[in-house]
């Protein structure tokens, strides 16, 4: 059996000062007032979550890890990527923690730090954003083909029936719609990319 000290330093043992403020760093980077520091670890979020079974840590556990400064473990967690944004946890949380928005923050932090373990979810978001940045509107067919070809080519044949149905019923456009003032939107987004949320 490993001596107790080893276990300690492997987990939430001595931390660098910047890790001790990890919780506040996340709270700061979240839109709105997140109330993250108010978590009482009651588990309402983990209990409410429809996809908790597929998460490596429940949201509650993730918040405890943020408090413990476990940066690496948090950013590698699949939890934020499994979050379906159903907001059940948000409205039930007795401490009004904006859990879903914290998940968005953790996703963008993981992308920046390149810590996520499965590249599918961030690439899907990135592909979607790419369409929006090009056309100003989403383009379902373009998104589907580009994303599936890169990530799930094997899923395509099985999906063909559905895709064909969507196309023949004209529920998927063959060409993208584009907004008129694309220049304006591009200028806004380019400027926005240079800005960061601080208090």
């Amino acid at each position: 059996m490993a001596p107790a000290e080893t276990v300690l330093t492997q987990g939430a043992g001595l931390k660098k000062p910047e890790d001790l403020t990890l919780l506040h760093e996340v709270a700061e980077a979240t839109a709105g007032v997140s109330h993250l520091e108010m978590c009482i670890q009651c588990g309402t979020c983990g209990g409410s979550c429809p996809s908790a079974a597929d998460m490596d840590h429940t949201p509650r556990a993730l918040f405890a890890m943020l408090r413990a400064g476990m940066r690496e473990e948090v950013l590698r967690s699949n939890t934020p990527w499994i979050c379906v944004s159903c907001y059940h946890c948000v409205v039930r949380c007795p401490q009004e923690v904006h859990i879903a928005d914290v998940m968005y923050t953790l996703k963008s932090m993981a992308i920046k730090a390149k810590k996520y373990t499965d590249s599918k979810p961030p690439d899907f978001s990135q592909t979607f954003v790419g369409m929006v940045e090009t056309f100003g509107r989403s383009f379902e067919l373009g998104l589907a083909t580009r994303f599936y070809l890169t990530h799930q080519p094997l899923r395509l044949p099985g999906m063909a029936g559905m895709g064909l149905g969507m196309l023949t019923k004209k529920r998927m456009n063959l060409t993208p719609n584009r907004i008129k003032n694309m220049d304006q939107l591009t200028a806004i987004l380019e400027k926005a990319k240079t800005l960061e949320l601080t208090s």
């Binding site: 983990g46 409410s48 979550c49 908790a52 429940t58 509650r60």
Partner: peptide
């Protein structure tokens, strides 16, 4: 009754 058993860390 759906709950997170927080001592186990599972729903």
């Amino acid at each position: 009754i759906q709950v997170e058993d927080t001592l186990v860390g599972k729903q």
